[in-house]
Each structure stands twice: as structure tokens, then as C-alpha cells.
Write a protein that binds this DNA or RNA. Structure first.
Lengths: 220, 220
DNA sequence: TAGATTGTTAATCGATTAACAATC
DNA sequence: TAGATTGTTAATCGATTAACAATC
């Protein structure tokens, strides 16, 4: 029986970023990398890198570091990216369409197999070779397959209703792009994809810089 | 001289989410809201909500709560969203195009004024009424205007080069959609927009659930 | 062997939560 | 006035960093 390794949330956030870096390193012919080198590339401390990696249950070699290919494969397996996770997407407007078109999801063991919408102009069409169905067919579609992940890319006014319906149809994880906090049973995994915190960082920091300059001038 | 209020990073992340909620509440005719009500909607504790809000320098009324409209306006001003921040975007492919088309940025005091690309098929065209220029014209364009924010939506192989060039041209904040960690002077504000941590959460939690079920069966 | 790097245990730091006084 | 809610100070929790022993 394999032991269930688990890591802290902050570590889990960083693991994919290590993967990104390692993928790049693997392309050069460098075979080993030290925690110091990883840390430098990613603006972290070497200790944090070692701790993160050791939490996933793999060891490096003192003096040598980590074998790039082994570490990358290990992290990918740890994250579950070695298996394909089929997902559906609800809402195929501007945002939804661009997600359906995004081909790099395969890197993350992620595959959007179908889209759903209410807009008759796109129902029945294909985007990036994925069929777009009427939302009415959602329940029927899910009943036939073992799909655990859904992406919500509908308007915020429709998001909660759709989410409830997804859960009723056995969806276990939701990636929500609508700027609204969903109210769902605790066992459902929800990831909120909201751009506003990012924008807040940018605008607030810019504002601080400006005020800093202004205040200095006034002090003089 | 106005005092420069600053908040912790985690608080800064949550402030936009309060705005999202308050915008919705403001549309109903509810005039006051308590920290308890906000907390419930957002799955936070009331204490955290009060602490976050008080850090921004506004007070509620005991027994009554916060005046919805006042609080919303205050947070918007605090984040700098009452002023328009002009931004440019480099890379107008699948992702870049969808950002240029995204009209809700105005909520966040954010305005993409122009796009840049190397693809001759789109240079000179307009997307959502914004002109797309040749990257060659980037330096000239920025020299003429007071633009502080840039969005990088180019391939990861080109991201660092573009970032260096933006900084040389007086850009102070970068929103990076390329899955690579940029190496830039410390005073430049960088926000990494990476979907992989979100996907990692979903895939890892799903994997844990599956292994949990499997282990239980084996134990029996 | 000497030097470099890993991995773990303990100390520190920052953020969240609890307790409670202040106030309408 | 009594009750409800805010806002602050202190305690707790979780994550990061430091110190150092283990190892190739």
C-alpha cells in the first residue's frame, strides 16, 4: 500500500513552477541541478527548495544535487500529471474559447474534452476539434462518462447554478473563472481563478510608488 | 501630506474579492453589511474581514456594520482603481487577443491601449478597437507616453528579452503570463500569472481522493 | 580526506484567530 | 439600558529560515 504523501498548500503552489524550470533545464543537456541553482532561478532560498522537494518524497545526492530528469518525472507523477484528467468547460465565450484553444494543458495532464454553452450560434460547432454542446445536454453527457473536473467560464450570475448542477452530476473538482465565491459542499475541490488580486498588486504598488515620490517632494 | 497606508500581501489579495462581493450587494438595495455577512459569503472569519478592512483605514459602525457604497468606493480608491492605468500588451496570439477583448478590465482601472506582435498578419490590424503594432515600434511608442504597466503574453522563450526591453523603456510593473520566472531589477513590480498552480491543486486533490479510496479498500 | 551539498530539527517570522474592551 | 457589532491587543498557528549533522 503506497503511503499518501501530502504537502503544504504553499509548497503545492510551487511544485508546478519547479516543473516549468526543470522542463527548460532538461532541454539543455545539464544532468544534475543543485537546490542553490534552482533557488537562484526562481528567487527562492535553497533551504526552501530542498524542503519542498523532500516533502514530495524524493532525495538528492549530497555534493551533486538532483538528477534533472528523475526529479521532473517524480514531480509530474506526484502532481498526478502523468495521467490524463478529462475535463469539460461550461461557457464558450471569449474566455472559454481561448481555454479550449490552449494546447499546453497536456503538459499538466489536463484535457478539455467538450464545451457547453447556451448560445445557439456556437452549439453544434467545433473549437480546436472539441464539440460544443447545448447546456441542456450536460446531465446526459456526464452520466455517460467518468469526468471529475469542470471549468466554469460563464457569467457570474449563472456560475452558482451551474456549479450546483455539476456537483449533482458527480463532478468533484471545479475550476471557477467567474468572479464570485461558490457555495459548495466541503468535499468538492474548488479553485478560484481570479485576475483581480493580480491587478490589485500592480495598481496598488504603482500607486504607492507615485505617492512616495509625491511625499518626498512635499517634505523638501 | 496623506499618510501612506500599506497592508500585508495576503490582505491585498483579498481586497479585490471584497470589491467583487460589494459590487453585487450594491446592486440590491441593501445599504449596510456586517463583517459576519461578508465572511459567510466568502468563507472567511468575521475577524479577518474586520482586520483586513481596518488596515485600509476605514471604520464601520458598531451594531450596524459597514455602509456598502462607502466601503466599496473606499476600497476602490485604496487599490488605485479610481484612476485609469494605461497598459500595453506584448504578444497578441490566442491568449493576448482574449485579454485585449476582455472588457471588464475597466472595473479595475485598467486599460489596454495597444498591442504589439511580430506576426505580420495582425500588425496594423485592430482588435476590440485597439491597434496592433510591430514590436519594432515598442521603444518609440513608449518614449512618447507615460505608460507604467505592461502585459507579457509572448512565448516563454521570448519573455525575458521583452521584459528587459520594457524596463529599459521605463515600464515599472509587469504582468507576466509566460510560464517563466523573470530576472529583473528589484524595484520593478512583477506579477506572475501562472495557471499551473491552480491545475496542480485540482489534479493533486483528485489524485489524493482516488488513492484514499483505493487504500481503504486494500485495508479491508 | 576535504569540500560541497543534502535533509532534518530548532528558531524565527508573519498571518490568522481568540479574547475583550469600546461604542452606537 | 441591553444587545450587537466593531477594532485592538494578545495568543496561536503555519510557513520560512537558520543551524548543523549526515553523506557522497
Amino acid at each position: 500500500m503506497s503511503k499518501l504523501l501530502d504537502v503544504s498548500n504553499r509548497t503545492l503552489e510551487r511544485l508546478p513552477l519547479y516543473c516549468n524550470l526543470l522542463r527548460g533545464i532538461a532541454k539543455t543537456n545539464q544532468r544534475y541541478i543543485s537546490s542553490t541553482a534552482i533557488a537562484e532561478e526562481m528567487n527562492l532560498t535553497p533551504i526552501q527548495v530542498r524542503k519542498d522537494i523532500s516533502q514530495t518524497g524524493i532525495s538528492g545526492k549530497p555534493k551533486v544535487g538532483y538528477k534533472v530528469e528523475t526529479l521532473l518525472k517524480h514531480l509530474i507523477r506526484f502532481l498526478g500529471w502523468n495521467k490524463v484528467h478529462q475535463a469539460i468547460i461550461i461557457g464558450c465565450g471569449n474566455l472559454g474559447k481561448s481555454l479550449i484553444k490552449y494546447d499546453e494543458f497536456s503538459r499538466y495532464g489536463f484535457d478539455i474534452v467538450a464545451g457547453f454553452d447556451t448560445n445557439e450560434n456556437i452549439i453544434g460547432k467545433k473549437i480546436n476539434n472539441k464539440s460544443i454542446y447545448d447546456v441542456e445536454q450536460l446531465d446526459k453527457f456526464l452520466a455517460k462518462r467518468d469526468i471529475k473536473i469542470a471549468i466554469i467560464a460563464v457569467d457570474e450570475s449563472a456560475a452558482q447554478t451551474i456549479a450546483d448542477r455539476l456537483v449533482k452530476n458527480n463532478i468533484k473538482a471545479i475550476w471557477n473563472f467567474a468572479p464570485i465565491s461558490l457555495d459548495l459542499p466541503e468535499e468538492i475541490v474548488v479553485q478560484q481563478q481570479d485576475m483581480s488580486p493580480c491587478i490589485a498588486f500592480l495598481t496598488k504598488k504603482i500607486k504607492n510608488q507615485k505617492e512616495c515620490i509625491k511625499n518626498n517632494k512635499e517634505v523638501k
